[in-house]
């Protein structure tokens, strides 16, 4: 059976991308991803992302010839939920808890080790 989809996903991460693609104005580009037709014998869905305008720290588009660094936040956060994404433990390393609340404190574990300030690498001795 032939199926149409707007986006096919390789992982859970990509779900966010898929949702984002249908948001108007996303990335400053086209608002929807190009529909991709499933080849009948292709069991693995393909991942597709639209082109994204590269932006600087002020959110301005970057032109060729610029020597400003691009900003992942202004480039990507227009579509993606950076608050949720960056509360992942790879980003925070103990700075925040599951709810995103800053949890740093001397003697984090309350067991007489004031040099431990979180349960992650950011805050350890």
């Amino acid at each position: 059976m032939r199926m149409w989809r707007q986006i096919c996903l390789c992982s859970g991460i990509a779900t966010l991308l898929a949702v984002a693609f249908v948001l108007e104005g996303c990335g400053g580009g086209s608002t929807t991803a190009t529909p991709v037709e499933d080849p009948p014998d292709d069991p693995a869905p393909a991942f597709v992302h639209q082109d994204v305008v590269l932006r600087n720290r002020l959110g301005q588009p970057i032109a060729l010839g610029s020597n400003e660094p691009y900003s992942p936040r202004t480039t990507c956060a227009g579509c993606h939920d950076f608050h949720t994404i960056t509360n992942g433990y790879h980003f925070q390393q103990g700075r925040t808890d599951a709810s995103g609340t800053i949890q740093m404190a001397n003697d984090f574990f309350g067991d007489g080790r004031p040099w431990l300030k979180s349960d992650g690498m950011y805050g350890k001795w």
């Binding site: 390789c10 990509a14 991942f47 992302h49 590269l54 588009p61």
Partner: peptide, 21 residues
């Protein structure tokens, strides 16, 4: 990985972005 659009801005090519690392 980058391409210029008609307005002179740079765009990250969508094919350069992968979902699952």
């Amino acid at each position: 990985s980058l391409k210029e659009d008609g307005a002179g801005s740079l765009r990250l090519d969508g094919a350069s972005i992968v979902g699952s690392p």
